[in-house]
């Protein structure tokens, strides 16, 4: 933890451990999204299967982190900054775990799409994935550095992702209207787009908690 150290070095270590593990979990989930998108764009089904298998490590970390946070609550009765940190950690943990699940969803859909001829070249989807990955990285950076400015930036990028999602939706609608045989594939691509949009929501959720951690104010549901 930044600033003055705890009188209890054991407590200090427990908090630092939680922080380190959260960052590690964040790195794993960002990688999972990147790999799942690669599996789709490169039409690499093997890669998609790896993403699905790797989720068990994310789930294990999620459980372990939650347990550590509950232990600190029970045994240390944290207050003020420490209380805000633990509350933040519990919620950030939940957001990251869900991002992992979204990566699995994308990978599963990639497997289905890879078995069919490609409907269209992917243009907006990789752009969207790039923004989303950046949001995950920035939200984690803001958490590590307790950086308010970066956390607030993440909220703005979410709007961009929402717009791309709507754009993809409209474009696919025209495909489906023109040729009903594209409906199955188009729907699956829509779902992937929706999954990425959910990841952006979770990254914003992480950033919102960082704002709470630093300022003590809750900014959720404000945008």
């Amino acid at each position: 933890m930044e600033g003055t150290r705890h009188t209890s070095s054991q407590y200090e270590m427990e908090l630092q451990d939680i922080k380190d593990n959260l960052i590690y979990l964040g790195v794993l989930t960002e990688k999972a999204i990147a790999s799942a998108m690669d599996a789709l764009l490169q039409r690499d089904t093997n890669q998609a299967r790896k993403v699905i298998a790797a989720d068990s490590e994310i789930d294990r970390l999620d459980m372990e982190l939650e347990e550590r946070c509950i232990r600190v609550l029970a045994l240390r009765q944290p207050a003020a900054k420490d209380l805000r940190f633990i509350t933040t950690a519990i919620k950030v943990n939940g957001h990251l775990e869900r991002i992992g699940d979204m990566a699995v969803n994308i990978a599963e859909k990639a497997i289905i799409l890879n078995a069919e001829p490609q409907l269209k070249p992917y243009i907006d989807l990789p752009r969207m994935a790039e923004i989303v990955r950046n949001m995950i990285r920035e939200s984690l950076d803001s958490f590590v550095n307790e950086d308010l400015e970066t956390a607030e930036k993440v909220a703005l990028e979410e709007d961009e992702v929402d717009k791309l999602n709507e754009q993809i939706f409209r474009e696919l609608l025209t495909f489906m209207l023109e040729d009903t045989r594209t409906i199955t594939r188009a729907t699956i691509i829509m779902q992937i787009s929706k999954n990425l949009e959910r990841v952006a929501d979770h990254a914003k959720g992480v950033a919102d908690m960082v704002i709470y951690l630093v300022t003590g104010k809750s900014v959720r549901h404000q945008y």
Partner: peptide, 17 residues
């Protein structure tokens, strides 16, 4: 005081630092 005190000195005491 116990969630977001105004002063760092208070925060340090409350959190055992």
């Amino acid at each position: 005081i116990f969630t977001k005190p105004d002063l760092k000195q208070t925060e340090d005491y409350i959190t055992g630092r």
